[in-house]
Simulated scan of single mutants.
Amino acid sequence: MSKTLTINDIAKIANVSRGTVDRVVNNRGYVSEEKRIKIQNIIDERNFIPNAHGRNLSLNKTSKIAILIPEHSVGDYWDPLIKGTVAATENYLHLGLKVDYFYFNLVDTLSFKNVEKDFFDNKYDALITSQPQNKQLKLFLAKCKKKKIPFVLVGSNDSKYGSLTNLGQDALQGGRLAGKLIHYGQSKSLNLKYVIFNIYNEQNINSNVVNRIQGFTCFFKEQKFFQPEIEIVEISINDPEISIKISNKIKELNDNDGIFIPNSKSHYIARFLDKNKSIRFLGYDLLNDNVKLLKEGIIDFLINQKPYEQGYQSIEIIYRYLATFQIPEVIVTIPAEIITKENLLIDINEKSIVL
């Protein structure tokens, strides 16, 4: 080859993640035998030589990374993401990596200010956090950018905040996928209605949700012979009549109609369903409550954002940038994973979904 082969190059050739190649090169962590042989053959054929300078550099300097995420409960979306960062950190500890966790309250401004002060006082080399949904986090990221502190955004496919890289699914395509799933196998002659429930928080607007809804509606606009009625119901989580509004809207649905929840609140909506009706139900995220409903057959499909993988890769990307100066791609798209009760099996460490 005309250029020095890198781990990124091997990953593209082998069609695997950079983390998988790294584990083979450094002989640590689990990799399936099939992938290990494939990667090793590429290494041998292309005479790949690991970046020894980068590894030596990392031994002489401790890289301090802060992970900043919202407060949450056990079984929430953030749990597997944290597990992913912990697993990656353990693999890089011997190379001088130190990771600290900070939690903030999404609606408590003072809580965030205290976290922000601790972050800057401790002079961290880099930051991993979520796509900003409120003013506080946006201003904080602007300060990081001004101070030239690199940061990675998880759950993001948007480069406008100046992050080193964005790890997440394409929300627009995710919405299109949801549209295809919800009417899969249904007759085009049926007069169907699909309701999208967007339960939102006024102080934390999720742009991913907006894009998923847009993708869902766009999918059906492009269908020549199948145009179901689509209604978008937007309700504030703080609305005192939220239960009445949801219940009344669901009562309007008939058999074969469908419900799409573009965020993790499927379990909140599902309790209003009439079990005597056959209504299609599709949502996002493998929260414990959502998984329970999936097993019971109340939810038909869940789209998994693979938070464990996002957490693991975010650590790898930041470490390589700090220690070996590898510049990552600005957007790293995590493929969507479709989960049904038939293929649901969480491994013993609750790391990921095993199909």
Rank of each mutant, 00 (worst) to 15 (best):
N204H: 09
V107P: 00
I338S: 07
P150K: 04
L164W: 11
A52Q: 15
Y200A: 04
E316I: 11
V24D: 02
T165W: 00
N56P: 00
I334N: 13
P50K: 04
I13Q: 08
S207H: 11
R55V: 11
D22R: 02
T6A: 02
G96N: 11
V25D: 00
E34V: 09
V154H: 12
E350M: 06
F226K: 02
R18D: 01
A171I: 00
L153I: 01
G155C: 09
S314T: 06
I67Q: 01
N41E: 14
Y194E: 06
K265M: 08
E342G: 03
V24M: 05
K113G: 02
L137W: 03
I318C: 03
S130F: 13
H267G: 01
E296M: 09
S236I: 06
K117C: 00
V99M: 06
K295Q: 12
G283I: 07
P80Q: 04
S111Q: 01
V233H: 06
S58R: 12
G283Q: 07
E33D: 15
F219V: 01
C218F: 11
T62H: 07
F102L: 11
E33F: 09
V25W: 04
I298V: 15
I331K: 15
G283M: 10
S73W: 03
K64V: 11
D121I: 08
D347S: 10
T217H: 10
Q186M: 15
S130H: 13
K135E: 13
N201E: 13
E231I: 11
Q305W: 07
L294P: 03
I7K: 02
I338F: 09
V16G: 07
D289S: 13
S247Y: 09
L95E: 13
I196A: 05
K123Q: 10
L93F: 11
I237C: 08
N191C: 05
V25K: 03
K83P: 01
R320K: 15
N248K: 13
S243A: 13
A87M: 13
S163K: 05
I339K: 05
K61M: 05
R46G: 00
R18Y: 02
V24K: 06
T20I: 12
F225E: 15
N157D: 15
K275D: 09
E222C: 02
I205A: 02
A87E: 14
N254V: 07
N166F: 08
S156T: 06
E234T: 13
T324W: 12
I353T: 12
F219D: 10
I230R: 09
D125Q: 05
K351M: 03
S159F: 03
H94V: 00
F112N: 05
K98T: 15
K138C: 07
K341E: 06
E234L: 05
V16H: 10
P132N: 05
F119K: 06
I269Q: 09
I182P: 03
K3C: 03
Y124T: 08
D257A: 10
Q227A: 08
